[in-house]
Structure formats: structure tokens, C-alpha cells
Design a protein around this nucleic acid. Structure first.
Lengths: 250, 250
DNA sequence: TTTTATTTGTCCGTATGTATC
DNA sequence: GGATACATACGGACAAATAAA
């Protein structure tokens, strides 16, 4: 036992070129995947198998797979296996950003599903964005969006409850934000401002977006205004960074 | 021993509200940090201490700290300790995006340091962006940018070697891309297109940006054109996502 | 300058839970 | 239900970097 540990420790120290075991394994697996050894959607060998193949402990393989998952290359599914993830898709951000137009224009089928909604007080943050008082009522719409059946983003949108009563019912009917706004007489609107940051998927995000928890998300906060400049809609979107690139044209 | 393991396993199963031990510890630590228990720059207790405090194994604490590091809240420094990281800064992206103006406008001191440069063939990607032939020579400039001594991004820029001979020398003199372009007669230019994605810091990024490897980066690819529309500069920037938010105004 | 203690990083091993097929 | 596979947690040992003595 003592000697076994000593040998293991020496292995760790003698990492080739000063690169640790788990990192070398991660790199080898990445190369195997990128060179087409495991096509998109393919299941990798089990952790135990990989461990035997490289002659290491299963935990070392787990560390390597965690790295690949962190790079967005694979996705572990408990009880089933570890699968190769597909590549990304461009998502333009400009004055006329409309989800359905973007996805449709890329030749894919857009989907929008209202997964939750509520009437609530605006609060300081939302009120500031929509130009309301913090006490005024807003309708919150939680929308899951996808393309060709693959979830792309979870978005939380807020609109004035007074300006757009029962916006949830209307959205559920049209399944489009543009049409919902049009129903309330907003013939056109434009994106005024967008904030972009990075966050990581929690358990809820992961379940909804069909991601592993901890995967990176592009957090896109935005304000849309009517042509006259009055704010009409504000949204916080969480995009699966593995599946989209944002594109800004000036 | 047997019973100890059994107890541990039961703990895992009986995770309060179905939340695992390491996640609860991560949440508690996050709350402690956000509520000011550990100010920015402060060192957290050692892993061993935290383990004793929560009555868990050190590995469980490590899993929790890895989570906090992944959220950008702390940074581990081997041999020293785990430290609380500072918050983010806004970085606008628009037609007139200029690093020095942005940072200066925020009341902070901009820095730009040329850390490497080379003359190389454009290749298909860069040639496509700059409107050159793949065989033409370009000058690559690797620039580390920061504000008030804190590194913000590492950028790799390419310009035509024919249009801007010895651009590296000129940049090193002015320490500003705008002034370098002006030196070659480019009186004004604008951002044409920007792609935004997420990547993770490798060892080199980490060292240059003073980050932990694996931290998220906002990858910002861009093309700048002269007023007439001819491309003059293309750049791939890697921004420490923990330190910046990108802002797009339409 | 050298030594020593501290702290994080890597790796092995074991046991058990839990989801999936 | 059983077999398989990933997830969590425990324990131990040593390496490597840092900081203090």
C-alpha cells in the first residue's frame, strides 16, 4: 500500500513536460474528439474503461472529463454516459434583434415556450429600466427558446401590467414576443441597450437548457424601446454559450 | 471504518433539501463573502480549517471552493491561500470602440503593453477579414491591456505589413492603437463587426491576466474599417469575464 | 541564505447513492 | 430487478509553491 502510493506520487511528479496526468488525458481525449474519433452525439467509453486504457485511477479520468465538460466539448449524463456536444450558432445583436427572425433566417425552426409567468411589483431594477415607479405592477414572462428542438436560451422578460394586461395569455397564443407587443399596439420597437456577461448554469438552468450544471452562460440583459424612445420591454436572457456566439454589427 | 463510510454515504443521501454537501458549503461561503464577512482581497481560512469547521473531508471543501472559483468569487493561490476576488467593470462595444478612451472615460488609467509581435503570412482567416490574399504579410501584435494596474484583456491584432510597416515599433512608441493607425495616415476608423463568445483561460492566459487557469474569458473578435469601408485592423481579444461586462448600445 | 511549516494541487483507493437502460 | 455508469464523500500520501522563522 505504502509503495503503491509512493509510485502514484512519483507518477504525478514525473508528469511529462510538467503537465499533469489528468490534463494530458484531457488533451488526448480532446484531440480524439476533434479529429473525429468520436462524432457529435457519440458516447465516450465509460470512466472505468478510460481509466483502464490510460492505466490511471477513475478519479483522474473524472478530473479530465470535468475539464472537457468545462471546455464545452462533452456533456456527462448521470447513469447513461458522457456524450460529445455539437458546435455553436451565430446570434446577432442589433437594433432589430428578434429571436424568431434570427433563427428562421438561419433556416432553422424557432420555438418559444412560456414556462412560467407572474404579476409582481416592478422593484427598483425593473422599474428603472422600464421607466415606471417601483410600486407599479409588471408581468414577468419566463420563456424557453430553442431552434430545431435544441434549447438556446431561457429568458425572463418584464412588461408593464397596465400597458399590457394578460400579456402571458397573449404570448401563449402567439408564441412570439413581436406579435404579443403588436397585439398591444406596438407596431415596431428596437433594441436600445444590451449588457453581456458570463455566468454558470445552476441546476434549474441546466435542466431547462439541457446542459450540465456549471456550463457557461452568456447573460444578455437588454432594454427594448418603442420608436419614440419609450421603454416597452426589458429582458434577461441566459444563453448556452456552447451553442451560440453573439454577433454585433455597428 | 465501515460505519464511518456508511454514515458519510447517508449524509450524502440526506443532503438537506436534496442539495449536496459541497454545494451547501459553497453557498454558505458565498453568502459569507457577499455579506462582507471576507472583504475583497482577503484570504479565506485554509481548506483544512474550513473542513474542520463544517465537519467534512478536505476534498469536499475543495469541491465547494472549486465552485466558488468557477463563479469568479475567489481565486486559489497554491502555497498561499484562497483569496476573494473584486467585482466587474463595464466595457462598451460600439462603432467607436477605443480601449484607452473607454478606460480613461471611466476615470481609470489605461495601459497597453506590446508583449510579442511577428511578421507572418496572413492565412485564410486573417486574409478574409482584412481583404488581403492569404499569402500577403501581416504584422501580429500581442497586446496586454489593463486599467489601474489590473490586467483586463490580452488582444492579438493583425494589420497589413505592406500598409503599416514596422507597426510594432510604432505601437511600442505610442502605446495606443489609435495613435499607431494615425501614424500611418488613418485619421479615423470604426468598428464594423464583433463576435462574442466564451472560452476558458489556459496557462498562458492565466499568467498574463493574473487569473486562475480555467476562469471564463469573453472572446471578442472584431474587424475595424476606415471610414470608406476598407478593413484596416482585425483583433481577437480575450477579456477576463470576471472583470468586465460588455455593453452594446444600438 | 537556508530551513521549516503551511497551504494548495494531484493522485490513489474505497464505499455508497442514484439515475438510466 | 439487475447491471451499468456517473455523483458524492470519505481517507491517505506526497508534490509543489509560498511564507515565515
Amino acid at each position: 500500500m505504502k509503495t503503491r502510493h509512493a509510485v502514484a506520487a512519483t507518477d504525478a511528479a514525473n508528469a511529462i513536460d510538467g503537465v499533469t496526468l489528468w490534463r494530458r488525458i484531457a488533451d488526448e481525449l480532446e484531440h480524439a474528439i476533434r479529429s473525429g474519433g468520436y462524432p457529435i452525439g457519440e458516447r465516450l467509453p465509460s470512466e472505468a474503461e478510460i481509466a483502464v486504457r490510460f492505466g490511471v485511477n477513475r478519479h483522474t479520468v473524472r478530473r479530465a472529463l470535468a475539464e472537457l465538460a468545462a471546455r464545452g466539448l462533452v456533456r456527462a449524463q448521470r447513469g447513461s454516459g458522457t456524450y460529445v456536444e455539437p458546435a455553436r450558432l451565430a446570434y446577432p445583436i442589433h437594433a432589430r434583434t428578434r429571436f424568431s427572425e434570427i433563427v428562421g433566417g438561419a433556416g432553422r425552426a424557432p420555438e418559444g415556450r412560456l414556462i412560467a409567468h407572474a404579476v409582481e411589483p416592478a422593484g427598483p431594477r425593473i422599474a428603472g429600466r422600464l421607466g415606471l415607479t417601483p410600486e407599479s405592477s409588471v408581468i414577468r414572462l419566463n420563456i424557453l427558446r430553442g431552434a430545431d428542438g435544441v434549447p438556446i436560451s431561457v429568458a425572463t422578460s418584464w412588461v408593464s401590467a397596465q400597458r399590457m394586461p394578460e400579456a402571458d395569455r397573449i404570448y401563449r397564443r402567439f408564441r412570439s414576443m413581436t406579435k404579443t407587443l403588436a397585439h398591444f399596439g406596438v407596431r415596431d420597437y428596437r433594441r436600445q441597450k444590451t449588457w453581456i456577461g458570463v455566468a454558470f448554469a445552476d441546476a434549474v438552468d441546466a435542466q431547462r437548457l439541457h446542459l450540465s450544471p456549471g456550463r457557461p452562460l452568456l447573460v444578455v440583459d437588454s432594454i427594448d424601446v418603442m420608436l419614440a424612445g419609450a421603454p416597452i420591454l426589458t429582458t434577461t436572457g441566459r444563453f448556452a454559450a456552447d451553442r451560440v456566439d453573439l454577433v454585433v454589427e455597428s
